[in-house]
């Protein structure tokens, strides 16, 4: 199977096979309740993570809340 090549927060990362957003978040060991995901500049609603399949070349931003004024 082809490698899945994604841009994650500006870094190229390779994964050995197909992934949904839910599987990616789990593979990255992130707490799904504390992050938000943007796929190719569109918000991915949390309720759809399991349905959204990722393709090579996809560009993701995964963010959370940090201290700020």
């Amino acid at each position: 199977m082809d490698m899945l090549v994604l841009s994650l927060n500006g870094e190229q990362r390779e994964f050995p096979g197909a992934l949904s957003v839910a599987e990616l978040v789990a593979a990255l060991e992130l707490d799904v309740r504390k992050v938000a995901v943007e796929l190719n500049r569109e918000i991915v609603p949390r309720s759809t993570y399991a349905m959204v399949r990722l393709r090579s070349g996809d560009c993701l931003e995964i963010v959370h809340f940090i201290g700020g004024g």
Binding site: N9, G10, L28, L30, E61, V63, F65, I66, G67, G68
Partner: peptide, 9 residues
């Protein structure tokens, strides 16, 4: 107030 930033992967 809070800021929004990339998660440290």
């Amino acid at each position: 107030t809070v800021a929004v930033r990339r998660v440290n992967l």
